[in-house]
Design a protein around this nucleic acid. Structure first.
Lengths: 150, 150
DNA sequence: ATCGGTATCGAAAACGGTTTTCAGTGGCTT
DNA sequence: AAGCCACTGAAAACCGTTTTCGATACCGAT
């Protein structure tokens, strides 16, 4: 599922209680830093490895949990690679967009395509579908990897 | 597949070697019939269940193996649902196309979109990417499921 | 400071889909 | 009839992800 705002109120545990603001824990901050530094899409496990590499002690479970919340909040994009693994990346724009991802190095570029949005909406509607959502992912070889490979 | 591309399992046993044609086994034929009858996308496990329902004794492993080969040969389409499960469906047209899939009942419709193909190609090229491929999936509620739900 | 309540952590176990292993089985060819 | 080898499938391994649940950390109140 690519970033889209189905805006489920999503019974976020803490979210409700009055003054209960999200606690800025050491783990959350460390994760946030790593996400800010990683350029492309990374798996939860890669992110966890990067945290450990930096000497941060954060459990894999916690990484998964934060990523889940962040993606629900629209703070990170998610996409599934060809093996079914979920990859995460900090959103640069909160607007709906898609990605061109290098299948070799994972680097990616955000692209916009109002045309696709409209097309998806139209063909679905024509087929009688409602509550439409879509995922679009483009894979290819980035210039660097293409050069390396020749 | 981020930084490390998990080694190809690849070594496909029979690997379309020399003149070894596919043997028309009982299992292969049963699977083929089920695929022909199932209207939309189904998971390997659903297909296996359907086989058993029909009294065919085919192992789940064999179902997976055949589906893998069939999809490599382009005889079936595959797509991943939102949980990461792989769904299969016999191709109706061998031409490149996309699907509008009901997120409730799994039924799907094939749609064509030359516009999207061109768009994907264009934005990728503009970003300097080559050897471009793309995935587009549209999810929604089909008319029947939408009705049921109200 | 101390206490109590609770949000958060994280190791370990559970989960579920898929793949691999490996000892057969059975279809061809000779 | 004999043998080769592709195919089969039950069980186990795999692997990413989620759940469980006791421990811990943070916060406001005392």
């Amino acid at each position: 599922m690519t970033s889209h705002s189905t805006a489920r109120p999503a019974q976020r545990t803490a979210a409700t209680g009055r003054g209960t603001r999200v606690r800025g824990t050491r783990q959350a901050e460390a994760l946030s830093h790593v996400l800010a530094d990683l350029p492309g899409f990374s798996s939860a496990q890669d992110i966890h490895a990067e945290l450990r590499r930096r000497g941060e002690r954060v459990g894999l479970t916690t990484v998964y949990r934060h990523l889940q919340v962040l993606s629900e909040d629209g703070a990170v994009d998610t996409l599934r690679d060809e093996t079914g693994e979920t990859l995460y990346r900090r959103c640069e724009t909160s607007a709906h967009h898609h990605h061109v991802t290098c299948r070799s190095c994972g680097r990616s570029v955000e692209v916009e395509g109002r045309a696709v949005e409209r097309w998806a909406e139209r063909v679905a509607t024509e087929a009688g579908f409602t509550d439409v959502d879509h995922t679009v992912e483009i894979f290819g070889l980035c210039p660097d990897c293409a050069r390396e490979r020749s």
